[in-house]
Design a binder for these strands. Sequence first.
DNA 1: GAGCACTGC
Length: 708
Amino acid sequence: MERQGLNAKVSTNDCKGENISRKRKIAEHRKSLPVASVENLLIQEVHRNNTLIIVGETGSGKTTQIPQFLFNAGFCRDGKAIGVTQPRRVAAVTVAKRVAEECGVEVGQKVGYSIRFEDVTSSSTRIKYMTDGLLLREALLDPYLSRYSVIIVDEAHERTVNTDVLLGFLKKVQKTRSRSLNDSFNTRNTNISGLVLENGNNGKYVSSLRQHRGRKLPPLKLIIMSASLDARLFSEYFGGARAFRVQGRQYPVAIFYTRKHVSDYSEGTLITIFQIHLEESPGDILAFLTGQEEIESIENLAKDKIQKLPESKRNLVIIPIYSALPSEQQLRVFAPTPPGVRKVILATNIAETSVTIPGIKYVIDPGFVKARTYDPNKGMESLIVFPTSKAQALQRSGRAGREGPGKCFRQYPEDMFYKLEDSTKPEIKRCNLSNVILQLKALGVDNVTEFDFLEEPPRQAIFKSLEQLILLGAIANDGKLSDPVGHQMARIPLDPIYSKALIVASQSNCLEEMLITVSMLSVESIFYHPREKLEEARAKMKSFSSPEGDHLTLINVYQSAEEFLNKKKLELSKEKLEKSLRKWCKENFINSRSLRHARDIHSQIRRHVEQMGLPLHSCGDDMLQFCRCLAASFFLNVATKQPDGTYRDCASGEMVQIHPSSVLFRKKPDCVIFNEFVQTNHKYIRNITRIDRLWLSELAPNYYALKS
DNA sequence: GAGCACTGC
């Protein structure tokens, strides 16, 4: 066992007394956590069982403590590591930092984290926090996860797509690792329990096996951590795995219901805000709403109402938060209010899990959520407002009891609560599966319909995605990934259609432009239009816009930012450069968080395509060449203008509209390709470029020759 | 003439 503090860097300048008292505080805090009292019992259970389900509510300390218990119990002998997955990046980083501090080491040494764009680990890392998506990517290179002795899947109850796929994959790895690799490798059959080993393009798998030939891997210990009260689903999935309950540490939250059905929950929310303000003791209020528009309208109504209060009661501030809001404005929810002032936060479900706001004593829950669903038949996504599930309602009310007893006001009668679904439909049942299927195939799961999912996605969705992957040339006739296209696509961490676009572009000398395009298409909206400066924002957007459409417009934005940076590069330090880019973004009404994200993706994908040896050429000013390349890449998403001026999606036959955010809105081109098909109030297509419809039979003959 | 829950590689 490694001794604690081995990797600690102790600065001689540290004030010794302060250090000791801090250490003592940490030790006391660790001891006080509910999970601390069951350390020995827990370790025993892990020794006895290969899979364990741990159910623990917030505040139990399971995420920070259990990996340390396992480390101290010797689970990292032989240089093996404990991997802990999280659905979100921020969680992986903050927990790793906390645990490193508790261990008295620097992050990246014994305790580290790895998320996309940021790997803070080293050869000495034994407790590694990471996102579940990242572990799946790691599995492509190391299909037995041979460097891990234990994998802990945290927040499994959230049921993100990545968590679900990971659980299925881990179950398979666990079975395989229980057998001797030595035997498996020498059998003539290269299919080891579904993990297909091919020679040639999958050389990495074979070499990973060779390393382990003659050595038996220890069984993979698996710990599934969930906050939901019902562990049965996980337990049954893992063959009746033992479930272990850990006490949480949550203050009581009193739940209040309305007496009658509420016909307008916006109004109900507004009334409740002011009732709390006028009748209840001090403490901030968090109200859950469904979207930006709703938040803005309630914000305005509430502000008007405040003005009508007697002056002594006007000590109320309204703060909105949703994901599209620029970061600086998001940070306002954390700013402390002056004494005597009550904060009201109007939030989307960003405040359910992603952002924890301190000081909340009252929660208002209208009982609705906007959720994305996917219609595999039309290939269309929809954003629809649904009632929440019971689990979600509990999650929301829990937000009032983090720091002391709280109250939750549900905007519906009590009998409604019992009619709600127990839990939210898992994402895997309501999303496009192309990425999931490509990844599973890359992990050696050839027959995806037979994959042991925790819960099966709809068959229709699987078939639709298989069809798309076949049309993109990722899957060959034998049902395996095609060589080299399918394997290349699986290696690139993008939507399959974007990965394919890069390969297409590399063959027509415009990979540089396509790399920028797919990076920009992979992030949230680049343009930011604040209501109060709408005209100014539109004028700025116009200065970047291309008559061809949104794709070239996005390239213009990216390149303008690069030019700006190149000009300033010589005179400014790195830090100041970042700052001046943010200023440039603000002046141009560009969301700097989105642009930075796009630049990160760009540099990551650039490394990938360079490693693959794809030629990074630019088509220069030949935009015709590039538009043809867009048509060749996105031929599955074509819409044509009808005689009456409306548009029809060629694949589904649905009538669609050009989204108002497009530079081609009101321009009425004959024929366009697009990248998003979403239904909100209308069926919209977004990110659009005009093309010549005659190109299609030439560029995608297999698809369009059949159709016409 | 009109708009976008949240993650992740």
